[in-house]
Amino acid sequence: MTASGGGAVAEAGARLAAYAAEVGIGCELGGRPGEYVVTLPGEKKLRTVVSVLVRERTTSLSAFVIRNPDENHEAFYRALLRKNLRLQGIAYAVDPDGDVYVRGELPTSAVDEEHLDRVFGVVLAASDAAFNELLALGFLGSMRREWAWRVSRGESTANLEAFRHLLSDD
């Protein structure tokens, strides 16, 4: 699978597709010329979908992390800015709706196994590893209401177990 385009774009796309196949992650052509959609498996977040846009000189990556928080905006965004200080090659960004993404760029000539492994690792850490912390910062009120509703009806709280220490009266 390769996207149409110039030699550098086609070569980088072929390297990306080969890397994805080798490590067993999903990779398919996106809707734009030179775009690939890569799906990274997660632990806290089920998956992180990364748009990889391969162009002649640069390749950009963008992945949705979490929607605009319901509450605690100042602490939520402060945490993201602090996390930006430790990220390599990507950064948290906010779209006009307040939804959070990670974005990065690398030279198209650097689209190889070593760089892809590193940048996808950083994307996954920024999206998956930080997910529960970001949920607790920006959505604790909603999670408390959901927990109380589930407990009152005898429903499963399995999807909220990671937050039991914040939600349960026990």
Rank of each mutant, 00 (worst) to 15 (best):
E133L: 09
E133K: 09
E133T: 15
L134K: 03
L134C: 03
L134V: 11
L134D: 07
L135T: 02
L135I: 11
L135N: 02
A136M: 04
A136C: 05
A136I: 05
L137R: 00
L137T: 00
G138C: 02
G138N: 02
F139V: 00
F139E: 06
F139T: 01
L140I: 07
L140V: 06
G141A: 12
G141W: 07
G141S: 14
G141V: 00
S142L: 09
S142W: 09
M143G: 02
M143F: 09
M143V: 07
M143R: 01
R144E: 14
R144Y: 06
R144M: 12
R144Q: 15
R144V: 09
R145M: 08
R145V: 07
R145N: 07
R145Q: 12
R145I: 03
R145A: 10
E146Y: 05
W147L: 06
W147Q: 03
W147A: 01
W147P: 00
A148G: 03
A148V: 11
A148Y: 10
A148Q: 14
A148H: 10
W149P: 00
W149D: 13
R150M: 08
R150F: 09
R150S: 04
R150L: 09
V151K: 14
V151T: 11
V151G: 00
V151A: 05
V151H: 03
S152K: 11
S152H: 06
S152G: 12
S152F: 12
R153G: 01
R153Y: 10
R153H: 13
R153E: 13
R153Q: 13
G154K: 01
G154L: 04
G154I: 07
E155S: 02
E155K: 05
E155I: 01
E155G: 00
S156M: 05
S156L: 04
S156F: 05
S156N: 06
S156H: 04
S156T: 13
T157I: 15
T157N: 05
T157P: 00
A158N: 11
A158M: 08
A158C: 04
N159D: 15
N159E: 15
N159S: 13
N159Y: 14
N159W: 13
N159F: 12
L160A: 04
L160H: 05
L160N: 04
L160G: 01
E161N: 09
E161Y: 09
E161C: 02
E161K: 14
E161G: 02
E161L: 12
A162H: 11
A162P: 08
A162R: 14
A162Y: 14
A162V: 09
F163Q: 05
F163P: 04
F163G: 04
F163Y: 15
F163E: 07
R164I: 03
R164P: 03
R164V: 08
R164N: 06
R164Y: 12
R164A: 13
H165I: 01
H165F: 12
H165D: 14
H165K: 12
H165S: 11
H165Y: 15
L166Y: 11
L166D: 13
